[in-house]
Amino acid sequence: MANGVVAITEQRDGAFRKVSYEVVSEGRRIADALSCNLTAVVVGSGVEALAGEIQAFGADAVLVLDDPGLADYRTDAYANGVAAALAPHAPAVVVIGATAQGKDLAARLAARWDAGLAMDCTAVAVQGGAITCTRPMFGGKIFADVTIKGAPQVIALRPNVMPIQRVARSAVVETPPVQLGSVKTTVVEKQMDTGGKVELTEAEVIVSGGRGTGGNFGPLEELAAALGGAVGASRSAVDEGWRKHSDQVGQTGRVVSPALYIACGISGAIQHLAGMSTSKVIVAINKDAEAPIFAKADVGIVGDIFQVVPEISAAVRKIKS
């Protein structure tokens, strides 16, 4: 009989990514609703110290998979290691962050387990022991409420959505021998951004620019810096070559849910709106009062971004100092 909730965390270079706290917090809420235990899984190399940190978010047990072969994420090594470690647990529910890593791992594990997977969920509700997950489809144009048949029910949670909750526990920490199995992939190089840039999907604030920037993202960068946020872009701005593909917000780009999304010179094509519609507060600044973006915004400003945005940066800096 499948029992218990497992939350698979994600760390990079020995530090948890924010989504890990979200996943364990949500795992705790699901476990409470099902009256069962929550096991957090930590995977990596030299990560034993992380077990203590994650207890504070409500795990009853922490399973640490510590092996040099798990230093960098590789689908086969992680899937083999996690599947072997979880085999004796036979969990009813597995939650994981829907990040680049989490989506890849969740899909591989679900196939191995012949299990249903609800990807990129923005809400999880438990009623009478039954779990309903809400997930945006068509890039957020439609929301689906889904249930999963069988066990485990694999639920990947959209980053930046689930509230983080501290629930102090003293968890049992287990460090089982790691069974990597056959690993064929190798990581030959990592090219990571430096300089403490805020990652788009983790950012609390995103300042995004479109065609209206004419390619000048300087004032947007400045506002993002003042707000401690990240800079995004519309598809047209990326197609023009003004920004990298990884900055693109939209149905064919990144799907983001920051607390504050400031759209500058973005008209609001359906496929762009799809990528940011779950943002908590949306501010639109555009010269064209008829731009469709205003229909999806909470606060609108009709004006020249090159005049307004620097003033906003100045006002933000003033209020913060």
Partner: peptide, 9 residues
């Protein structure tokens, strides 16, 4: 492409 960079595999 991963969050914040590129990994060559």
């Amino acid at each position: 492409v991963v969050e914040g960079g590129t990994v060559v595999v």
